[in-house]
Nucleic acid binder design. Structure first.
Length: 420
DNA sequence: GTCCATGATTTTGA
DNA sequence: TCAAAATCATGGAC
């Protein structure tokens, strides 16, 4: 049986509606006069349509009568079926959306940041990593870290409370609409599927609100991250001791200020910073030194003295230990040429005429030492210092380095750091 | 608020 | 991939 036939059959079955029911003399009269099932149906429909023209009480009474009719469920069932197969079937195709990629992205991000999902000290790993990269002192970073976590927890709390409100509102509204539809289904053909569909529409609408919530939460987290964890923002000057250690290494290896990976690690450990920060520091130092040697002259001299004094102390101690009567006798650790070239250059400049050291220590300033140790004997001695550019002297060639003592060139040749 | 120093990042080239 | 160079962004002194 096709739909149309079934519908007609169903409607035909309603022929008795006018007779048994309504009790309206007019309709009974009409029913009797027409005498055909089709006409009966037309009459019933007309009555339904006419309800709106009637007074409220009359309409209520007629609605009630229609609702109580024994054929009503059959009529509604048929109408629902027709509706299902026409309007709703067209929508159905469009409504089966794939999961929204935007929401998925936001969900993933919130999960990664520890805002959604189980609490796991949200973002603390990221905070710790960023703090480490920023190279702040442990105290500083831990303060900032806890501050960051506190703010993140605040965001998390707000997010969850808003989410809860949203879910509550969504379910309340859904229930309300479902009840309304169920109520209406008594007077107009509404299938359970249609109700389901309506619920889905409501959920989609609420879902877009949820997406806004997630989006703004993500933004808040991003702002928090950039404020607390952005390395640039968190730039902190290294402490004095760290700078000293780095400068000592730099000036004692002035002929080739390229620490090996191992040396960098050693320096990083000594300074309490990361290896990449050591690399950054040397990168910056080299370029800035090169651009403005004159400016760094004093600093170079200072560290040269420091290194020389250290070396001399070591030498003196070693000499005393080995042969107190013959200082500087070439024993291990003695203040030899190979240890002091750059250092010596620095000392000479400091005194104006050079240091009063044995003539054998005089260095050809045009050919600075290729191997410097100063305070870093342990590094070079253990092979940590790898002079990978000794051959080319590219650093010296470009920097006009030969002597720390003499000005790098005519005043005009000294460039200021144009970077600022 | 300005200026300078300085650590970090980005771009470029070998 | 590494280093140089340029640039950005912040801290701190004034």
């Amino acid at each position: 049986m096709d739909d149309q036939t079934r519908m007609m059959t169903g409607l035909t079955g309603l022929g008795g509606l006018a007779q048994a029911d309504v009790g309206d003399p007019d309709s009974v009269r009409k029913q009797q006069s027409l005498g055909q099932p089709q006409q009966d149906i037309g009459d019933i429909l007309q009555q339904i349509m006419a309800i709106t023209d009637e007074s409220l009480d009359e309409a209520q009474a007629r609605k009630h009568a229609l609702n109580c009719h024994r054929m009503k469920p059959a009529l509604f069932s048929v109408l629902c079926e027709i509706k299902e197969k026409t309007v709703l079937s067209i929508r159905g195709v469009q409504e089966e959306d794939p999961p929204d990629p935007q929401i998925m992205r936001l969900d993933n991000m919130l999960l990664a940041e520890g805002v959604s999902g189980p609490e796991k000290g949200g973002g603390s790993a990221a905070a710790a990593a960023a703090a480490a990269a920023a190279g702040g002192s442990p105290t500083d970073s831990s303060i900032e870290h806890s501050d960051y976590r506190a703010k993140l927890a605040q965001i998390r709390q707000i997010y969850h409370s808003e989410l809860e409100k949203y879910e509550q509102a969504c379910s309340e509204f859904t229930n309300h609409v479902m009840n309304l539809l169920r109520e209406q289904s008594r007077t107009r053909p509404i299938s359970p599927k249609e109700i389901e569909r309506m619920v889905a529409i409501i959920h989609r609408k609420f879902s877009s609100i949820q997406m806004q919530l997630k989006q703004s939460t993500c933004e808040a987290v991003m702002i928090l991250r950039s404020r607390f964890l952005d390395a640039r923002r968190k730039r902190r000057n290294f402490n004095k001791q760290a700078t000293e250690v780095l400068n000592e290494y730099f000036y004692s290896h002035l002929s080739n200020p390229y620490p090996s990976e191992e040396a960098k690690e050693e320096l990083a450990k000594k300074c309490g910073i990361t290896v990449s920060q050591v690399s950054n520091w040397f990168g910056n130092k080299r370029i800035r030194y090169k651009k403005n040697i004159g400016k760094f002259q004093e600093e170079a001299n200072l560290y040269a003295v420091k290194t020389a004094v250290d070396a001399a102390n070591v030498s003196a101690q070693a000499s005393q230990a080995n042969s107190p009567a013959t200082p500087n006798s070439g024993s291990p650790g003695s203040f030899s040429l190979s240890h002091t070239s750059d250092t010596y250059l620095g000392l000479r400049s400091l005194n104006g005429e050079g240091l009063n050291i044995a003539p054998s220590l005089q260095v050809d300033t045009l050919h600075p030492a290729t191997h410097l140790t100063g305070g870093y004997e342990e590094l070079s001695g253990s092979g940590l210092y790898t002079p990978h550019r000794l051959d080319a002297n590219s650093w010296q060639d470009t920097t006009n380095l030969p002597s720390v003592t003499s000005p790098p060139g005519p005043p005009g040749s000294v460039h200021s750091d144009t970077s600022n």
